[in-house]
Design a protein around this nucleic acid. Structure first.
Length: 516
RNA sequence: GGCGGCGUAGCUCAGGUGGUUAGAGCAGCGGAAUCAUAAUCCGCGGGUCGUCGGUUCGAGUCCGACCGCCGCUACCA
């Protein structure tokens, strides 16, 4: 059983999680569940990034000590991920001792293997006394800090520890070009390659005047710069430097937002190479969730809270909508209108109703017992369609094309609805064509069971419910994709179908916000 | 400024290496059916393929210019 070590970016502890955070976690969870379906020994890690200045500020605004603040945030995030049925195996926080230990160990390892890669130098920058940090780029407008336009930025020199990033340009470039480190999707790979081709500068990896952080080994006047600190979480979670960490390391896939690809595709691999540790095998950089075509930035305020989105139609529905319509590759739009449309048309009317009518007929015509299929000859069209859908689903999911995987699932459900219309079981029953009816009902039951398996990575709760309706079988978690071809529901006693995805009678709340 | 991407039916999008009447899903309209969450199934709807030129027997599909969005451009996670 091959191991599959999967991570998401750890979330910054300075505010509530929103739909953007959720997309990343749900996408990663979908992949984790799919890999388990594939038979991989999955280790899925999420967590919190809890150091740095903004955390201190957020804590101060809330009037609590930093540790109390990050504890509160971690609990909040973890609760949302639980509500969204995330199936992570571990939850790491950068304020944990195991992480501080790993950071110190990694730095020590670099110092031992490549002493020249860590050195001290002067860092020069514009320092804002309001923020207590250096400002660059877009943070400076008209020569002033955007947060404190009335204060003067002070040119300041600071003695810092540096990492010789420049020494690893060629090695990182080679790994990405050769595919040893896969950067996906293609557009992100190209961006990273161009960045590398342009050359790298060494980076400072420590900060003075920054009490909320991991002490820099050998220089207690300074703390480890938050990015250098944060990236190491992926290694900390393996148990590094304790023996056995290499059972998990290297990571098979880091899921990150497109805004932080260079940290994961350039700096992180270079850090590992300097420590003579293997680089991750793949990085997937997803796009962002937009609200009616505009950015959902923290500063602009969130037009929709994560809680509202979950409450709308339930966690499964939100998961499905984010992965199917918003998508895990490009930026995508979230609107109540689109959410409701997908929910109604696909989850309720196509899949939910298919389950309803199939099981209802099983009860009406066969007392709830799936009959044996007496047919001995050519498989019905639905069987051919099911195999094609499973193959297409696997192809898409292997390539992390989650939208297409969901589309394959939906296509099979639609096909099953057509199969019912074409065979018209109610007519077969009327005419007393029992053998034909048995064939149709057995095939329908089998298709519904297969759909439950394929749906599990996207809508785990509903999938388990449907699977459970068949009773007397192995838990859904033990089923593998390879089992689908021979999967049969014959002789099983099925329960009465519940309404999986109820449809609100009237215009649900929040719809009016669409107009503004 | 530099590099790159996008702009196809009301909406979300497919459309390797140019070639008969430009496709799908959703929404909308008409019909059928009645097992089912008034769900399903069938049919229909004609969009200057961002704009203007060019190459070609022929371009959504290649070239150039332009317009409009967007991403990256290294220490904000």
């Amino acid at each position: 059983m091959p191991k599959f070590y999967l991570t998401t970016a750890i979330d910054y502890s300075n505010g509530e999680p929103h739909l953007g955070h959720a997309l990343e976690k749900i996408g990663a969870d979908c992949i984790a569940r799919y890999r388990r379906l594939r038979g991989d020994d999955v280790h899925f890690v999420m967590g919190m990034d809890e150091h740095s200045q903004s955390v201190i500020q957020a804590a101060a605004r809330a009037g609590v000590p930093p540790q109390a603040w990050v504890d509160r945030m971690a609990a909040t995030f973890a609760d949302y991920w639980r509500r969204l049925h995330c199936s992570h195996d571990d939850w790491i926080r950068t304020t944990e001792p195991r992480h501080a230990g790993a950071v110190a160990a990694l730095l020590e390892r670099i110092r031992q293997r490549h002493p020249a890669d860590l050195f001290e130098a002067e860092y020069e920058g514009l320092y804002c006394t309001g923020c207590e940090e250096f400002k660059t780029g877009a943070q400076i407008v008209d020569g002033h800090c955007v947060e404190h336009p009335t204060l003067e930025l002070i040119p300041t020199k600071e003695r810092n520890h540096f990492f010789r990033l420049s020494a690893y340009r060629d090695a990182v470039l080679d790994r990405i070009r050769s595919g040893a480190l896969r950067v996906q999707p293609e557009i992100r790979r190209n961006e990273v390659l161009r960045l590398l081709e342009a050359g790298l500068q060494d980076i400072s990896i420590s900060r003075q005047r920054q009490p909320w952080g991991i002490p820099f080994p050998g220089d207690l006047q300074q703390t480890v710069y938050v990015w250098f600190d944060a990236l190491i979480n992926y290694l900390s979670a393996t148990g590094f430097p304790e023996p056995g960490y290499d059972r998990l390391w290297p990571a098979d896939l880091h899921i990150v937002g497109k805004g932080i690809t260079r940290f994961h595709c350039v700096i992180w691999p270079a850090m590992l190479l300097a420590a003579e540790l293997p680089a991750p095998r793949a990085v997937w950089a997803h796009g962002y969730v937009q609200w009616s075509g505009t950015k959902m930035s923290k500063t602009a305020g969130t037009p929709v809270t994560l809680g509202e989105a979950i409450d709308r139609h339930g966690a499964d529905a939100l998961r499905y909508f984010l992965l199917r319509e918003v998508g895990f590759e490009n930026d995508g739009d979230f609107t109540w209108e689109r959410f409701d449309a997908r929910y109604t048309s696909e989850l309720a009317d196509t899949f939910g109703n298919l389950v309803s009518r199939s099981l209802a007929m099983l009860h009406r015509y066969r007392s709830g017992t799936v009959p044996r299929d007496p047919a001995t000859h050519a498989p019905p069209p639905i069987e051919t369609a099911a195999r094609a859908a499973v193959a297409g689903y696997a192809r898409a999911m292997d390539a992390l094309a989650l939208e297409q995987g969901a589309a394959q699932w939906m296509e099979l459900a639609a096909h099953a609805n057509r199969y019912i219309e074409e065979t018209a079981p109610w007519k077969l029953a009327q005419r007393g064509q029992d053998a034909e009816l048995d064939t149709v009902l057995a095939n329908l039951a089998r298709t519904v069971a297969r759909l439950a398996v394929l749906a599990a990575p996207f809508i785990p709760r509903a999938a388990a419910t449907v699977w459970g309706l068949f009773g007397e079988r192995a838990p859904l978690e033990t089923i593998r994709l390879d089992d689908l071809e021979s999967l049969s529901a014959e002789r099983l006693q099925v329960a009465k179908p519940p309404v999986l995805f109820p449809k609100p009678e009237r215009t649900p709340r929040g719809a009016q916000k669409l107009v503004t």
